[in-house]
Simulated scan of single mutants.
Amino acid sequence: MKKSLIGMSLVATLMLAGCGTSSTSSPSDKAAEKSETPANNEAKQQDDGVSTEFKSALKKAESYATSMHMSKAGVFDQLTSEYGEKFPLEAAQYAIDNVKADWNANALEKAKSYQESMSMSKEAVRDQLTSEHGEKFTPEEAEYAIQNLGN
């Protein structure tokens, strides 16, 4: 019995030494260290098959959509811009495909902002909402905003 325990201890020590860890830590310490490594944390985050970068792009997209009331195209451009977030196209597309946003409500909020702060006419607001140099909302989203904008 003593021989087998000594042999098992020696094997465990050699296995730990082979992993690049000191043999003075207990196996439970090693397990705790292993579970806290960046590689393992990344593996945990990727268990659902979505990379950390894609998740980050989605989080940014949600922020732009909810706090800044941006359009889908505007969010995508911000995510991929060399002057913005610089996400790869695939990560930005994942974010756009998965963001939970009410684009009509965003268009309406932008329309209200233009009307109140800049005293713009409804037609000027519509142009600003749909402009490729402006907000980049779809014509349908802009129409919803104009129809629901107060008098």
Results as ranks from 00 to 15, higher is better:
130 T>E: 08
151 N>Y: 07
61 A>S: 10
50 V>F: 14
92 A>E: 09
62 E>M: 09
78 Q>L: 06
12 A>N: 03
21 T>R: 07
62 E>F: 02
114 Y>Q: 04
90 E>K: 10
118 M>D: 15
103 W>T: 01
42 E>C: 04
99 V>W: 03
17 A>L: 09
136 K>N: 04
42 E>A: 14
38 P>M: 04
112 K>S: 11
56 S>M: 11
127 D>G: 14
87 F>C: 01
73 A>I: 01
27 P>E: 02
36 E>K: 07
48 D>R: 10
105 A>L: 08
82 E>D: 13
116 E>S: 14
110 K>G: 05
53 E>H: 02
125 V>S: 11
112 K>N: 15
62 E>H: 14
75 V>K: 04
60 K>Q: 12
24 T>C: 00
37 T>M: 09
75 V>Y: 04
124 A>R: 14
121 S>K: 15
75 V>D: 02
93 Q>R: 13
131 S>Y: 12
105 A>Y: 03
88 P>A: 15
39 A>I: 05
100 K>G: 05
138 T>R: 04
65 A>S: 15
69 H>I: 02
43 A>E: 01
18 G>V: 05
89 L>D: 15
107 A>H: 04
102 D>V: 00
132 E>L: 11
22 S>V: 01
28 S>I: 08
57 A>I: 06
133 H>G: 09
31 A>F: 02
129 L>R: 05
148 N>M: 04
55 K>P: 06
102 D>I: 00
112 K>W: 12
